[in-house]
Simulated assay, not measured.
Amino acid sequence: MTFDLNGFGGVLLAGMLMTIALALSSLALGLVLGLAGALAKTSSSLPLRWIGGGYSTIVRGVPELIWVLLIYLGTSSLLLQIGQLIGRPNLAISAFAAGTLALGLCFGAYATEVFRGALLAVPRGHREAGLALGMSSPRIFWRLILPQMWRMALPGLGNLFMILMKDTALVSVIGLTEIMRQAQIAVSFTKQPFTFYLAAAGLYLSLTVASMLVMHFLEKRAGRGFTRAAR
């Protein structure tokens, strides 16, 4: 069987670049939301714990595809109304921005639990030692707690990122030209679904393998001092 892309190879590669950009943008947003959610859930403030728990529970309880549609359609309607008020009737949100918000929101909800577990795994004595040395609470967090939390959270975050990379295919339903959308366009022209969906699967697999290699490097780098201490 000849694997012929009928001139759509460059289109699929452009879709892969869009997928990478979407995944990295969603990752950056999700890490911020996840860390904020974990800090809220481990806070001594009851309202903050409610907010953190509500965020992770509600977002994780709704399929990612629904969040993509809700954010894209809901935000478009809101921006349309705002645009009419300010004299800009064409005001709208892009598919890329909506996809980033939706996937970042979902990634952050799952990352909240990963960060929360990592925070609880840091010995309380380290915080007490920092206080004994006269360090402020923010300095203790950034210099003592965060590095250890990051090392323990990396494996879980790596798994979530690989899931996020594949979830970018969901954004094709709102017209973003990532891998899946480009494959659908190619299929509509060539009537060769097996060829192009197999090519899309290969691109997703290559991105997953690359992500695994990067995560292995980051985990190894983050655990250098601990590895030597264990020996």
Rank of each mutant, 00 (worst) to 15 (best):
T2H: 06
F8R: 15
G10Y: 11
G10T: 10
G15L: 04
M16G: 07
M16H: 07
A21P: 10
L22N: 11
L22W: 12
A23F: 04
L27S: 12
L27T: 14
A28M: 09
L29A: 11
L29T: 11
L31C: 07
L31M: 15
L31K: 12
V32N: 08
L33N: 08
L33E: 04
G34F: 06
A36M: 02
A36G: 02
G37P: 02
L39R: 01
S43Y: 07
S44A: 15
S45K: 00
W50F: 14
G53P: 05
G54D: 01
Y55S: 01
S56I: 08
P63H: 00
P63V: 03
L65N: 00
W67F: 10
V68T: 00
L70F: 06
I71A: 05
S77D: 14
I86T: 05
I86Q: 02
P89M: 00
N90I: 11
L91H: 09
L91Y: 09
A92P: 07
A92M: 14
A97S: 12
G99R: 01
A102H: 05
L105F: 05
C106R: 15
C106W: 15
F107V: 13
F107I: 11
G108Y: 06
Y110H: 02
Y110M: 07
Y110K: 08
Y110T: 03
T112D: 00
T112R: 01
A118P: 02
L120V: 12
L120Y: 10
P123M: 06
R124I: 01
R124H: 07
H126G: 12
R127Y: 12
E128Q: 11
A132R: 01
G134D: 05
G134C: 03
G134R: 02
G134N: 00
M135C: 00
S137C: 12
F141Q: 04
L144Y: 01
W150G: 04
W150T: 15
R151W: 09
L154F: 06
L154C: 00
L154D: 03
G156S: 02
G156V: 09
G156L: 01
L157N: 10
L157P: 06
G158K: 05
G158M: 01
I163W: 15
K166A: 04
T168V: 08
S172T: 03
S172Y: 07
V173Y: 02
I174W: 03
M180W: 10
M180S: 09
M180E: 07
R181F: 13
Q182G: 13
Q182W: 11
A186S: 11
V187D: 15
S188F: 03
S188K: 10
F189V: 15
P193V: 11
P193L: 10
F194I: 12
T195H: 11
F196W: 13
L198A: 14
L198I: 04
A199D: 00
A200M: 06
A201N: 09
G202F: 09
L203A: 01
T208E: 15
V209P: 02
V209W: 13
V209L: 15
V209C: 14
S211R: 07
S211C: 10
H216A: 14
H216K: 14
A222S: 03
F226R: 12
R228K: 13
A229V: 03
A230M: 02
